[in-house]
Design a protein around this nucleic acid. Structure first.
Length: 589
RNA sequence: GCACCCGUAGUCUAAUGGAUAGAACGGAGGCCUCCGACGCCUUUAAUGCAGGUUCGAUUCCUGUCGGGUGCACCA
């Protein structure tokens, strides 16, 4: 479906042409003076030089040609040479009605659905999720949904950290604590127990203990490194134990991500490319991409035009072991072979930008990806506390994600109970969680991903202002009116949209026509904040309309039905919008 | 030391090179016999500094000051 700006531009372009000017000049944009007009065209000014005419003369001629247009209710040429445009009520209503009948409100989809993979989440096995994992999950999930909505085929991969020294540390610590387990018996024959010899809480306690010990105890560390190597080399007992660690941990991670309404299509990890690495390294050597430098194997990725020094991309450490780069490159190779994606998106802390520059260049140079494969780095900024420094608990420690969410859930629960004593506990709990998620996610996503932002719980959970709860409040308000209307015997689904009669009503309709623009813009620039800004504006427009218009007490039934239709469309658009951001609305709050 | 990113009302934040820089919180004032006042309306206040490119710069370029981050065997 053509965008409303395209339709309008087409009309204005035709007028430019009819007046003897280049049609290109007829490009129309949203007005930045809403007090004067709805849309504007600056083409007369751009064309003034070319045609050696005063801009306002050109604008006058074009305005004259547009005088009979059915699209516009008003066309004015203004001082320097602006064309100020207002569209007709009929045209806007027609456009909104058409949106409703189109797939995804008529979003412009790519000719073929490009196959993209998005790498986000990135938690480490056996370590609890903390606030540092929040942004990747929230932004990644939203981008995945936005791209899917915009017509891409998207696969989200969590990319677990499940294969490093941390595994060796856990195994070694476990060996010290429970040396009698069969996994440590070299002569063990047959099957290993199906039950894991630990719970998730034990696991989460074991890792930090082992990590701390390795920093003080050299022998312990050496043992852990040896265990890591044995694991990677395929020691049966260690592999069996590793599977237990993975299972217990992944089950817990799934629970936590589900609680965040974040879903991954793939639960791959670093371990999945372990077998790919030797072949890849050999390939890089044979084709002369990789060479030895200070004992390590590296690929040069510096380019002539660099203003800063880009260090070579290291493939193997000087002791021959693989590292982060190795698994990331091997993952790229595996993804290309298995999924043939046309684009890869990484949602990672922006501090890793230089690192990913190296990896991307290396992947291109070594032809792991095709020349046309898109590689995107979506680096996000730090989540800071109110003091402007990285977010910590009151005690200064790392805040567990689970705890943070539980705290906000509680806060919302109390708030909801305060206002609505009649809501039962189960509903209040469910609603509280929905509101909490909206607060957290909207608070994050309404900022540009690349910027640091202040995680201000009081601000995010406020029901006032530019917040998630405010958006939900607006939706709940609409739901409440629609429910009343039906209760009084009205037919919401059969309600027909009418031409706007007030400024607030028209403004609301005009805003509805811009929904897909916000999604397309978010998809193109990988910026979910565009969708936030849009739904916030739409909520404001709805509330203004609500205050200036008596809806249920409107005596004219057809008019009332028109209002109901407008509310219903707005609700649908808001519902779609928040779904793209990864949260949902309750029926009341 | 070198490089990269960011400097917008008191605070937080938005703006494909275009008219009078848009919101939110806070401050001041108003609106409930009426559909959810967790709302609406009015008002207050900002592009770090100095140059340049342009008809036009928050946006592009140079310098400068301030903050953050990164500089191969961690991830």
């Amino acid at each position: 479906m053509e965008k409303i700006l395209e339709l309008i531009s087409k009309e204005v372009s035709a007028a430019f042409e009819a007046a003897g000017y280049d049609a290109e000049l007829g490009k129309v944009t949203l007005s930045n003076r809403p007090d004067l007009c709805e849309y504007q065209c600056n083409g007369a000014m751009a064309g003034a030089k070319k045609y050696g005419k005063a801009p306002f003369m050109i604008a006058d001629e074009v305005a004259e040609k547009l005088s009979g247009s059915e699209i516009f209710s008003s066309v004015e040429s203004v001082k320097p040479g602006f064309l100020n445009l207002k569209v007709s009520e009929d045209f806007v209503r027609g456009y909104v009605v058409k949106m409703l009948h189109e797939h995804h409100f008529g979003i412009a989809e790519p000719m073929h659905a490009p196959n993209f993979m998005i790498d986000y989440g990135g938690p480490n096995v056996a370590k609890p999720l903390h606030v540092g994992h929040l942004r990747s999950a929230v932004i990644g999930e939203s981008l995945k949904r936005i791209l899917k909505y915009a017509g891409y085929k998207v696969t989200g991969d969590i990319h677990l950290g499940d294969w490093g020294l941390q595994m060796g540390l856990i195994i070694t610590e476990l060996k010290n604590r429970k040396p009698d387990l069969p996994y440590f018996d070299k002569d063990h024959k047959g099957q290993y127990p199906k039950e894991a010899p630990f719970t998730i809480s034990e696991l989460e306690e074991i890792y930090p203990a082992a990590s701390a010990k390795s920093k003080e105890d050299e022998a312990f560390k050496a043992e852990a490194m040896e265990a890591t190597k044995l694991l990677q080399d395929g020691d049966k007992g260690y592999r069996a134990l590793w599977h237990h660690i993975l299972n217990v941990s992944v089950n817990d991670l799934k629970k936590n991500y589900k609680n965040l309404n974040v879903n991954f299509d793939l639960w791959r990890g670093e371990s999945d490319v372990h077998d790919v690495i030797p072949g890849m390294v050999e390939y890089m050597k044979q084709h002369g991409y990789a060479h030895e430098s200070q004992g390590a194997l590296v690929v040069d990725v510096a380019e002539e035009t660099d203003t800063k020094e880009i260090p070579p991309c290291m493939i193997l450490k000087s002791d021959g072991a693989s590292l982060y780069n190795t698994t990331d490159l091997a993952t790229i190779q595996q993804r290309m072979e298995e999924f043939k994606p046309e684009g890869l998106i990484y949602v990672v802390d922006k501090r890793q930008e230089l690192y990913f520059t190296q990896v991307f260049r290396c992947a291109r140079k070594t032809k792991l990806v095709l020349p046309e494969t898109e590689l995107h780095f979506v680096g996000f900024g730090t989540m800071n506390g109110k003091d402007g420094k990285p977010f910590k608990t009151r005690e200064g420690g790392v805040m567990r994600l689970e705890k943070l969410i539980a705290e906000i859930d509680d806060k919302m629960y109390n708030r909801i109970k305060e206002g609505n004593a009649e809501i039962d506990d189960a509903e209040a709990k469910d609603t509280a969680h929905k509101v909490a998620l909206a607060a957290i996610k909207y608070g994050d996503l309404s900022n540009q991903p690349s910027k640091d932002y202040i995680f201000d719980i009081d601000k995010f959970t406020s029901f006032e202002g530019d917040t998630g709860p405010y958006i939900l409040y607006t939706m709940v308000r609409i739901k409440s009116i629609l429910a009343r209307y039906e209760k009084e015997g009205g037919d919401v689904k059969g309600a027909l949209l009418r031409n706007a009669e007030s400024a607030d009503e028209k403004n609301l309709m005009l805003l509805l026509t811009r929904f897909t623009d916000s999604v397309e813009s978010a998809a193109r620039d990988l910026m979910p904040n565009r969708v936030c800004a849009y739904i916030y504006e739409l909520s404001n427009a709805l509330n203004s309309f609500y205050h200036s218009t008596k809806i249920l007490s409107e005596p004219d039934e057809e008019k009332k039905s028109g209002y109901i239709a407008l509310l219903s469309v707005t609700l649908k658009v808001l519902e779609t919008g928040i779904d793209l951001l990864g949260f949902s609305a309750p029926d009341r709050m």
